[in-house]
């Protein structure tokens, strides 16, 4: 069993080893959906929500797989869980909060192929977290993803107004910006002690 304190697990997932900027998970939505601040923050919320649900499910399924001694099914069962968790979350939100459902729109189904979610499930298994730690880890990872994508969206909105040379326009300049952000986040390395 892993004995990291809950505060450390959270800060580690959100800042020190930020999922997007230092573990390179969820780069596709990070680049694809970070053009506007509003959509970016919604995407971040949706990811946070799905991460919490799928983290709980993955925890339960891992326990089950260990009991029946079939860990080689881990990957296949995780991906099925995530796909169904996304579907479940979608139905749940549509039923209980149509406003939020409309706000999230297309982003919900797209989360299935977000590697941050699968990465979270795999990491929490390999780090051998207990239930509370896994939950906090999911919370931290979701918060970290939201922070990164919102920061990026803010930068890109500013970028719209500036004079960028023709060649670097588009993904090129976004990657350079992400590099600078990633360097900045390395400053958090000492936080956990």
């Amino acid at each position: 069993m892993n004995s990291e304190s809950i505060t450390f697990v959270f800060i580690n997932a959100a800042l020190i080893n930020n999922f997007v900027l230092s573990a390179f998970l969820g780069i596709c939505p990070f680049i694809g959906v970070s053009k506007k601040l509003e959509t970016a923050s919604r995407m971040g919320m949706a990811v946070l929500f799905v991460m919490l649900v799928s983290s709980v499910c993955a925890f339960a399924v891992h326990k089950l797989l260990v009991i029946i001694d079939a860990q080689y099914l881990q990957l296949i069962s995780y991906i099925v869980i995530i796909a169904s968790a996304v579907q479940l979350v979608e139905m749940f939100i549509r039923k209980f909060s149509p406003v939020l459902f409309r706000a999230l729109g297309i982003f919900l189904p797209l989360i299935t192929t977000n590697c941050a979610i699968l990465g979270l499930a795999l990491f929490q298994t390999s780090k051998d977290y207990n239930f509370v730690q896994a939950l906090v880890y999911a919370l931290g990872a979701g918060a970290g993803f939201t922070i990164a994508i919102v920061l990026m969206a803010g930068l890109r909105e500013e970028l719209e107004l500036s004079d960028v040379p023709g060649l670097v326009k588009g993904t090129g300049i976004v990657l350079m910006l992400a590099g600078l952000l990633s360097l900045t986040f390395m400053g958090f390395a000492g936080l956990g002690g």
Binding site: S22, L167, T171, L175, A178, G179, L180, M186
Partner: peptide, 19 residues
């Protein structure tokens, strides 16, 4: 070799391709 370098290197390659 740090994470930031990955973004810089890929950005640079995209630049070369765009050129």
């Amino acid at each position: 070799v740090l994470p930031g370098g990955a973004f810089f290197a890929l950005g640079a390659w995209l630049l070369v391709f765009a050129w």
